[in-house]
């Protein structure tokens, strides 16, 4: 399977290279390192969110509330910043992580303890968290002029040639890579996604592991909340409305199987990059937004078809065992 995963990621990488090549024919400067750095930076938030979603999908669950969590947490830190500009940014980031964690823990608790399917739980909290944003803000916006300069400039500060936002994305990617390959939790996430029954027998607590993944996706949603608000310098109830679908699309294009258990950090990152390039670059070369949608949609279906081909082989083995038994 490892070989195949690599194969799949290489496919995706090739797809991205072709896309960049095609865009370069129309927009010569596109493939410049400086511009590619810019594309990476532009896609950072989506990459971070896709990684949070990935761990949830790996456990055969889904988190539809990530964008609403982002909106709520973003509003909370924006209002805090507007009211108390003296709070240092790192403290605000910790607050964002904590608020996101609480929202994620609510999802996780409902999935774990009340045994409600995650799609139902997060469909509910998708609305609730956005509604809660309205309640805390009273429907008002937080505008750029209410935010402190530090709040806005933190992620733009250049460090070793890259903006802070890119460094944060790289750090998150590295942490997820280590977590998925080198920790007990990461291994458990894959195991319960592939075979929950066998995992129970092996002494893995499936419910608790699901709780943990929702806490992770919640924290990621919270972190992305601060990054999003400080990037687009406006906090409102409408922030990232419907963006949960982009996050899930990035995962699916990145080869994360909706059936759970299959997917990698590299895949999620590349899936997000692919979508990021489409949405950032195509308008520049005057391709209409409708074509963009068609291209993203085709990429999703193509990815699912390729993944299904990859998974078919093991499906046969399961069938053979069932017959022989």
């Amino acid at each position: 399977m490892k070989n195949f995963l690599k194969y799949r990621e290489i496919w995706l990488l090739a797809g991205i290279a072709v896309l960049i090549g095609l865009i370069s024919t129309r927009f010569p400067g596109f493939a410049d390192p400086a511009n590619l750095r810019q594309v990476f930076n532009d896609t950072s938030i989506l990459m971070i969110l896709a990684l949070g979603q990935m761990v949830v999908i790996l456990t055969r669950s889904i988190d539809l509330s990530m964008a609403s969590n982002l909106c709520f947490t973003g509003m909370v830190v924006a209002m805090l910043n507007a009211a108390h500009p003296a709070i240092p940014i790192p403290v605000l980031i910790v607050i964002a992580l904590a608020v996101g964690l609480v929202l994620g823990a609510i999802n996780g608790f409902l999935v774990w303890r009340l045994n409600i399917p995650s799609i139902v739980v997060t469909l509910g909290t998708l609305t609730i968290y956005r509604g809660a944003t309205f309640v805390v803000s009273g429907g008002a916006w937080v505008n750029a002029d209410q935010m402190s300069p530090d709040f806005i400039n933190f992620q733009r500060a250049a460090f070793l040639g890259l903006p802070m936002l890119s460094w944060i994305a790289l750090l998150v990617i590295a942490l997820f890579f280590l977590a998925m390959t080198r920790t007990q939790v990461g291994r458990s996430i894959y195991a319960i996604g592939v075979n929950p029954t066998a995992s129970v027998y092996a002494g893995i607590d499936v419910g608790r592991t699901k709780f943990i993944v929702f806490c992770i996706s919640g924290m990621i949603g919270g972190l992305a909340g601060y990054l999003w608000i400080s990037r687009y310098v406006i906090a409102s109830v409408e922030v990232a409305n419907g963006y949960e679908l982009n996050i899930i699309a990035a995962c699916v294009i990145g080869g994360i199987s909706i059936a759970g258990g299959i997917g990698s950090v590299g895949g999620a990152v590349l899936g997000a990059l692919f979508l990021g390039i489409i949405s950032n670059a195509l308008p520049v070369i005057n391709i209409s937004p409708f074509w963009q949608m068609a291209i993203s949609g085709s990429a999703i279906i193509l990815a699912v078809v390729l993944n299904a081909r990859g998974e078919r082989r093991q499906g046969r083995i399961i069938l053979r065992n069932a017959e022989a038994a």
């Binding site: 592939v194 075979n195 027998y201």
Partner: peptide, 12 residues
């Protein structure tokens, strides 16, 4: 049930 409860197919 080896397939369902024992091995985790897809993991090495």
């Amino acid at each position: 049930e080896r397939g369902k409860q024992g091995v985790v197919i897809g993991l090495p």
